[in-house]
Lab assay of single mutants.
Amino acid sequence: QVLVIRIKIPNSGAVDWTVHSGPQLLFRDVLDVIGQVLPEATTTAFEYEDEDGDRITVRSDEEMKAMLSYYYSTVMEQQVNGQLIEPLQIFPRAC
């Protein structure tokens, strides 16, 4: 299952990153890619938005798994409803 992660860049749009092994993705892998997209920032975590629009911070593989399972459940709903699949949007955080 292909996963598209949209890395939101403060004040300048976003970069889409296509991942072919989504469920095996590790927290460190995401930080590495964010580091390539935002080389001047030191990113130690990132956030995503849940169904209520609240930002949830991801700082570990466990939290990463929770984010992915949340995302895959929303994708299934979108597929069932015949909607366009939205990329998983993440917001890098420099701490």
Results as ranks from 00 to 15, higher is better:
G53Q: 04
N81W: 04
S69L: 08
T44I: 05
V2Y: 11
V80K: 13
P23Q: 12
V30A: 05
C95L: 14
P10Y: 03
V15Q: 06
Q1S: 15
Y48G: 02
V15W: 09
A14L: 06
Q24H: 09
L68M: 12
T43Q: 06
F91R: 03
P39R: 03
L88K: 01
D29V: 03
T18I: 07
D29T: 09
W17S: 03
L38R: 04
G53V: 01
I7F: 04
I56C: 07
D50L: 15
E86C: 14
E49C: 07
F46R: 02
D52Q: 13
V15P: 01
L38C: 15
L68W: 06
P87L: 04
V30P: 00
V80S: 14
C95T: 10
E62F: 08
I34D: 02
K65R: 11
L31C: 06
P87H: 02
L88I: 02
Y71M: 01
Q83V: 11
G13Q: 05
I34W: 00
Q83N: 11
K8G: 04
Q83L: 10
G35F: 06
Q24W: 04
V15H: 12
R28L: 05
H20S: 13
S12G: 15
T42I: 10
N11H: 05
L31A: 11
S12R: 14
I7E: 05
R6E: 01
P23N: 15
P23H: 15
I56P: 02
T57Y: 05
F91Q: 00
I56E: 03
E86P: 11
L88M: 04
L3W: 08
L88T: 01
A41V: 13
R59S: 10
V4H: 14
A45W: 06
N11L: 04
D29R: 03
M76F: 12
T18W: 03
D52V: 11
T57M: 14
V30K: 00
L88V: 03
T74Y: 14
V4M: 15
H20L: 06
E51F: 07
I85P: 07
A94H: 10
I9L: 14
D32P: 02
E86G: 09
E51S: 13
T43F: 08
Y70L: 08
T18R: 07
Q36D: 06
I56D: 01
H20C: 06
H20Y: 05
E63P: 02
D61F: 06
A94Y: 11
D61C: 00
E47R: 04
I5M: 09
A41Q: 15
A41R: 09
P87A: 04
M64H: 06
D32Y: 13
T43H: 14
A41C: 05
P23E: 10
T18H: 07
G13V: 11
Q1N: 15
Y48F: 00
T74A: 11
G13S: 04
L25P: 11
Q89D: 06
D61W: 03
G82N: 12
T57C: 14
S73I: 05
L88S: 01
P39S: 06
Q79Y: 07
S12N: 15
L26A: 13
F27P: 00
C95I: 09
